[in-house]
Write a protein that binds this DNA or RNA. Structure first.
Lengths: 361, 361
DNA sequence: CGAAGTCATGACATCGGTGTCATAACAGGC
DNA sequence: GCCTGTTATGACACCGATGTCATGACTTCG
C-alpha cells in the first residue's frame, strides 16, 4: 500500500506538501497540487488512519457495545427490538458527525463486554456507548481508561451518564388520559415489580391517580406476570378474576405490556365481556404487531427508543467536545400515548387534548 | 493515556522489555515481569493499536457494510430481515476469529457506500464484506485499494467472491417434494421475473418438472406480482382465476413468496375452495410470522441467511490468510424445505424422505 | 529602496509501539 | 581457561503521518 512518501517522490515534492494537499491546512501552489493529486490517484493512495492518529491522538472512532444484533429475531415473539431501534438512532446521529461508529455485538454473552471494551480502548475510541436490551441496572467498567461513557436503556451506581426510557412518565400520561376520558376505577395488572420497568410503571400509575385526586385502591393493582420460565398465564387469569370480582369492578384494565393485553383480550371475552363496551383495555410498549392488529386496536404508550439513541449519540459527541462538563446522571426520555379504540370514553367529552402529544389513530 | 514508556519508567526497565511482556515473544525474568505487570495495572495502561499497527501492518479489522440496521422494522411488514440474519452469521464467526468486526450502516443510502469503503481502507481493514438487502447485482469498487472483498446476497460483473442464496435449488427442492407427494398439476404464481430471485426460482420450478418428466405447461406459470408501488393485488386475483379456469386446474399452487401465499389463502377461500383439500398452497421464504401462523401452516422453503453470513466470514478469513488463492466467483448456499399441512399428499406414500433435509412440523 | 508581510515549500522531530542487533552474565563442554 | 550457547535486557531505527520551524521568492507599503 502506497505511503505519503511514495506520493511525494512520484510528484517530486516533499511529504509535508502532500500532507498539506490532503488536509488543505496551508496554501499549496496550483501546479504542485495538481501534480500531487495525480500521483495520489495513480498510486491509489489512501492515508493511514493509524499513522495519522499517532500524531493527533484523535481516532475519530466511537465504540458501541450492544446485543441487538444477536437477538433471536423470531418475528412472532411478542417482544419489540428496543435495542435495535436505539442503535438506529445512534447510527443516524453519528453518520452526520464525521465520527466513525464501531459496533461490537456481545453475541448475547455479557461476559464478553470487558473484552470488547478493551479492544475499543486499544483503538482509542473517543467515547463508548453501551446499549442494554431492557431497562436495568448494570455495572460498566472501563478499567482505568478514562474514556467518556454513555449508557442507554440502563444505568449504574456511579452516576455514569445514562439515557433511560421514562417508564413512569409514560404510564402517568396514559393513566391521566384514561382519567380525562372519564375512567375512575382503573385496574393495573403489573409486570414483576422486581423489574425496573415494572416498578417505575407502577409508580406512574399511582402518581396519576393521586394527581387526579382518585384514592388508590390496592385491590386494583395486581401482579400478573412473574419473571420466570414456566409462567403459564395462570397468574393473569387469577389477576383478572380478582379485579372483576370486586364490588366496584374496574371500567378499564391497564396491562404491564402489550403482550399481556393480547392475552387479556381472549380472557375477557371468555368471561362474556365486550371490549371496550364492558371493559376497556390499555397496554404498554406500542408493539405495533399487536397494538394495530388486535380488534379493537389497542390504546397503549410508546417508549421512544430511536430518540433515546439519538440523544445518547448527542451526549457522547458533547462529552468528546468537552461541551457538557458532566451531564452527570441519567436523562429520561418520555414517549407518546397512542389512543385507539380499545378504550371507551365514559364522559361527554368527545375530544380532548393531552399535554403529552398523544396521537389518535 | 499512559504509554509504553511510562510503564517502562515506572517498572525501571526498557520499553522493549515491556513490549516483550505484552506479547510474550521472548523470555522475561520472573521479577521483571512482575514489576512490569504491576506498573501496567497501576497506570491503567492499554496499548495503542495504532502504534502497533504501524510496524506490523496488520490492523485486525474486518469491515462490514450493510443497510441492515436502518430497516424500518415494522414488525408486521411481511418481509423478513435477511440482511440482519446475514450480519448475525458474520458476527458469530468473526467473534471467534480474533479479528474485530467494524460494522458501518449505509442508512439506506447506497450512495454512501464509497465513503464508507474509503473510511475502512483508511483503517486498513484486512477484508471488506458487503451485504445487500435482497438478491441482486451490484457494482462494488474499492478504488485502487487491493483489499479482499466478499459480497453477500449480491454479485458483480467482475467475479468478486460472492455468497448467494440458492433460489433455484430451493424452488427445485420444494417442487420436487410436491411431485413426490403425488402432485403433477403444479401452478406457480411468480414474482416479477425482472428480480434476480424471481427468475432463479422460476428456473428451479421448471427444472424440477423436467427432472420428474412432467411436461411444462406455460398456462400454469403466471406472474402475480409486479415490482411497482401501486400493486393492489389485482394481478394476483387474475392469476389465480386464470389457473383455476384451466381444463385441468392445479392441485397445488406455489407462490413467489410467503406474503403472496398469505393473500392467496383469502382469495382461494373466497372462491369456495378448501385448503389443502381442494387446493394445496406452498410459499417461499419461511417467513415464520406468516408460515407458522396461517391455518393450515404453510409449506415453504427457507433461504439460509445465517449460514450465508457464516460462510462469507469464513471466506473472508481464508482470503486474509492467503489460504484460498481465488475463491473466484459465487457460491450458492441451499436451504431446507419446511413441510407443513398446507399441502396434501395425493399418493399413498404417507412418509417419504427428501434428499434435501426437509423438516416436518 | 529597504522593511515587513505573505506565499510556497522543505528539513526535522515526534507520536507509541516493535523488529534487529548488540551486550552482558552465566552455564556447560572440551 | 577458552569457546560456545542460552537467557535477559537495552539501544536504536523504523512504520506513516503531521506539527514546528526555517527558508527563499515575491509583494506591498512608506
Amino acid at each position: 500500500m502506497a505511503t505519503i512518501y511514495d506520493v511525494a517522490k512520484a510528484a517530486g515534492v516533499s511529504p509535508k506538501t502532500v500532507s498539506r494537499v490532503l488536509n488543505s491546512d496551508a496554501p499549496v501552489g496550483r501546479e504542485t497540487r495538481k501534480a500531487v493529486e495525480a500521483a495520489m490517484s495513480d498510486l491509489g493512495y489512501v492515508p493511514s488512519n493509524a499513522a495519522r492518529m499517532m500524531r493527533s491522538n484523535r481516532s475519530g472512532l466511537i465504540g458501541l457495545i450492544t446485543g441487538a444484533l444477536s437477538h433471536k429475531l423470531e418475528p412472532m415473539e411478542p417482544t419489540g427490538l428496543p435495542d435495535l431501534y436505539i442503535v438506529q438512532g445512534i447510527q443516524r446521529v453519528m453518520a452526520g458527525s464525521g465520527k466513525t461508529l464501531m459496533i461490537a455485538d456481545t453475541g448475547g454473552m455479557s461476559a464478553k463486554v470487558p473484552e470488547l471494551v478493551r479492544t475499543f480502548l486499544q483503538h482509542r475510541v473517543e467515547a463508548l456507548i453501551y446499549v442494554a436490551d431492557y431497562h436495568r441496572k448494570v455495572t460498566f467498567d472501563t478499567g482505568a481508561g478514562h474514556c467518556p461513557v454513555v449508557l442507554v436503556n440502563c444505568f449504574d451506581a456511579d452516576g455514569t451518564p445514562a439515557i433511560l426510557p421514562d417508564d413512569e412518565q409514560c404510564q402517568f400520561d396514559l393513566v391521566t388520559d384514561l382519567i380525562r376520558s372519564g375512567h375512575e376505577r382503573i385496574a393495573y395488572l403489573t409486570l414483576d415489580p422486581a423489574m425496573v420497568a415494572g416498578e417505575l410503571r407502577s409508580k406512574g400509575y399511582r402518581a396519576a391517580l393521586e394527581a387526579a385526586g382518585i384514592p388508590y385502591d390496592g385491590a386494583l393493582e395486581v401482579m400478573a406476570r412473574e419473571n420466570v420460565e414456566d409462567d403459564d398465564g395462570g397468574l393473569l387469569q387469577r389477576a383478572l378474576d380478582s379485579v372483576l370480582a370486586l364490588d366496584r369492578p374496574p371500567t378499564v384494565i391497564c396491562c404491564g405490556n402489550d403482550e399481556m393485553a393480547l392475552r387479556l383480550y381472549g380472557l375477557i371475552r371468555s368471561r362474556g365481556l365486550r371490549i371496550p363496551e364492558d371493559c376497556s383495555v390499555a397496554g404498554f410498549d406500542n408493539y405495533r404487531a399487536i397494538a394495530e392488529t388486535l380488534y379493537p386496536p389497542l390504546t397503549t404508550v410508546e417508549l421512544p427508543y430511536q430518540a433515546m439513541g439519538r440523544r445518547a449519540a448527542e451526549i457522547a459527541l458533547g462529552m468528546i467536545n468537552g461541551e457538557s462538563e458532566q451531564p452527570a446522571g441519567s436523562e429520561m426520555v418520555p414517549g407518546p400515548v397512542h389512543w385507539r379504540s380499545s378504550v371507551t370514553a365514559l364522559n361527554s367529552v368527545t375530544k380532548f387534548r393531552s399535554n403529552t402529544g398523544s396521537t389518535f389513530s
